[in-house]
Design a protein around this nucleic acid. Sequence first.
DNA 1: TACAATGCTACGAATTACGTAGTATCTGAA
DNA 2: TTCAGATACTACGTAATTCGTAGCATTGTA
Lengths: 106, 106
Amino acid sequence: MDANQLWGRRLKQARLAAGLSQKSLGITAGIDPFVASTRINRYELGVHKPDLLTASNLAKTLGVPLAFFYAEEDDMADLIYRYSKADTEAKAQVVQLLAASPGLAE
Amino acid sequence: MDANQLWGRRLKQARLAAGLSQKSLGITAGIDPFVASTRINRYELGVHKPDLLTASNLAKTLGVPLAFFYAEEDDMADLIYRYSKADTEAKAQVVQLLAASPGLAE
DNA sequence: TACAATGCTACGAATTACGTAGTATCTGAA
DNA sequence: TTCAGATACTACGTAATTCGTAGCATTGTA
């Protein structure tokens, strides 16, 4: 599976979970109604890739973090999604657990 | 800060942590040595945005998950990085902790 | 059967990134 | 000091990619 196709698969998964059509997703995300269906379809099939602003708007519409779309491993995608939905306490526990792991220096 | 600039800031952060120059990062990631510096520089400043394959190669070279570059919040970037560096046991604990949070339906 | 909704695609135009060919600045060695 | 190499950065024209237009095919349903 190529990178664009994986990206599209994650978009489609989030869209279906939200119960939206390709067209309505695009429109809600601010894409011109006359081309919304066309563009979302191409993103999902991995034919084209949207710019960051469009991707961010799609993520907001679908209630997932932008980074979710770019996860290369399924467990990473799951982590990103679940963390974003977790309550404050659970997030704090995760942060504490991972505090032992090294952060990015500099 | 615009989305491309944030992306570039994360790339730069990871590059500096790895102790590489813009040129050497690009070369190691497989970019033509004659244009590596130019391209990495434009990515870091948010002038241009690389395609997914290039971004993935940069992530591999720097030892960060691809999704790290696309995190919109700093705590999300930190989560993604630390999780990727955590040992198997710590990852399992995180997964268990977040199992209470809802996953993405469908 | 009709018709609306949905998913999908070829084509030319518009947008974006790329490669070329540099400049400016800094640091270390002679 | 001066020179050379390394580093970060940028204007310009070309090449590559996405966009908008204008559709087609299939499914469900009134």
